[in-house]
Amino acid sequence: MKITDCTTFVIGNKPPHFGGKYFIVVKLTTDTGVVGYGEIYVASVGPNTVATMVNDIAERWVLDADPNRIELLWRQMYSSGYSLRPDPTLVGIMSGIEMACWDIVGKDAGKPISDLLGGRVHDTLRTYTYLYPNAQRPDVYSNPSQAAEQAAFEVSRGFDAVKFDPAGPYTAFDGHMPSLDDISRSVAITGAIREAVGDRADLLFGTHGQFTAAGAIRLARQLEQFDPLWFEEPTVADAPEEMARVARQTTIPVATGERLTTITEFAALARHQAASIWQPNLGRCGGILAAKKIAAIAEASGCQIAPHLYSGPILGAANIQLAATLPNLLMIEGIQDWTGFHAELLTNPIQWEDGRVIPSREPGLGTALDEAVALANPYVPDPDDATDLHLGMHPTPIR
Rank of each mutant, 00 (worst) to 15 (best):
Arg185Ser: 15
Arg185Gln: 15
Arg185Pro: 03
Ser186Phe: 10
Ser186Met: 06
Ser186Leu: 08
Val187Pro: 08
Val187Leu: 10
Ala188Asn: 10
Ala188Ile: 13
Ala188Ser: 15
Ile189Pro: 07
Ile189Glu: 13
Ile189Phe: 11
Ile189Trp: 08
Thr190Gln: 12
Thr190Glu: 13
Thr190Gly: 15
Thr190Asn: 09
Thr190Asp: 00
Thr190Cys: 07
Gly191Leu: 09
Gly191Glu: 05
Gly191Trp: 10
Ala192Gln: 07
Ile193Glu: 10
Arg194Tyr: 13
Arg194Trp: 04
Glu195Cys: 11
Ala196Gly: 05
Ala196Cys: 03
Ala196Glu: 11
Ala196Asn: 08
Ala196Thr: 08
Ala196Leu: 12
Val197His: 04
Val197Tyr: 08
Val197Pro: 03
Gly198Met: 14
Gly198Cys: 14
Gly198Ala: 14
Asp199His: 01
Arg200Trp: 02
Arg200Tyr: 15
Arg200Glu: 14
Ala201Asn: 07
Ala201His: 06
Ala201Pro: 04
Asp202Gly: 13
Asp202Val: 02
Asp202Ser: 15
Leu203Val: 11
Leu203Asn: 04
Leu203Cys: 07
Leu204Ser: 05
Leu204Asn: 06
Phe205Pro: 02
Phe205Asn: 04
Gly206Phe: 03
Thr207Phe: 08
His208Lys: 02
His208Gln: 05
His208Val: 13
Gly209Pro: 02
Gly209Ala: 08
Gly209Asn: 07
Gln210Tyr: 04
Gln210Gly: 12
Gln210Glu: 07
Gln210Asp: 01
Phe211Ile: 00
Phe211Asp: 09
Phe211Arg: 05
Thr212Ile: 13
Thr212Glu: 12
Ala213Thr: 08
Ala213Leu: 09
Ala213Phe: 00
Ala213Cys: 03
Ala214Ile: 09
Ala214Thr: 06
Ala214Tyr: 01
Ala214Gln: 07
Gly215Cys: 10
Gly215Leu: 01
Gly215Asp: 09
Ala216Lys: 11
Ala216Trp: 11
Ala216Glu: 12
Ala216His: 03
Ala216Pro: 02
Ile217Asp: 01
Ile217Cys: 04
Ile217Val: 07
Arg218Gln: 01
Arg218Lys: 03
Arg218Ser: 06
Leu219Thr: 01
Leu219Pro: 10
Leu219Asp: 11
Leu219Arg: 01
